[in-house]
Amino acid sequence: MRYVKWTLIFLVALSAFAFLNYNLPQKDIVRIADTYEKRVDPGENTWFWGSVDSGNAAGVNRDVFFIQAIQTNGRPMVYRNEDTGWGWPPYFKFDTSNLQAEAADLKSTKEAPQWVAVRHYGWRNEFLSIYPNAVAVWPVAGPDVTMIPWFNIIVLVLLALILLRLYRMVQRFRERRIDPMLDDMNQAWDRVEDHADAAGKRASGFWGRLIGRRK
């Protein structure tokens, strides 16, 4: 039972971490190599694609903007650039085309790199063909500027406070309602056991007399 409990707790914690890791914004320092668009037909990876551009009609497939970039360690990273609109995650991003124009404007070559910060959410996964969604780009001084994730700090602290409060509420509820109930149940069960013991003694006495065996 203990293993089951800890496995469940671990799974819940893992999904919470994955959820936050996917949805909270992160910043990368990259060099934009190119921008392009291609048609996508989301299939089993539908979850990781946005919906149709805000205001457009939904179709089977659509064109999606992409931003090709090279990270500071020289490895590639490709971002998609899609509206989140009014849906999840709540970035309220409607300026996809403007962002694509800005990204194209910040293109640079390996010889004369222009480093840019890309704020994005989501994951890159080659097996599922999913891409992080870029929400903002802006030029930075160099490949190793430090940026403090204030937004994430505030969100995580608020979340921790809410969780703590909920935990306290559950604890208080338990002390006031469930523990007394359990006590009652335990007492009731004790009485049941006493009865059973007494009945058992009587029964064994009866059978003992019947069969003629003495304890």
């Binding site: 709540p90 970035y91 309220f92 991003k93 409607f94 300026d95 403007n98 929400v135 903002a136």
Partner: peptide, 11 residues
């Protein structure tokens, strides 16, 4: 919060 987010994200 939503109004601020929309402003920050898009403008």
């Amino acid at each position: 919060v939503v109004a601020t987010l929309i402003y920050v994200m898009n403008y």
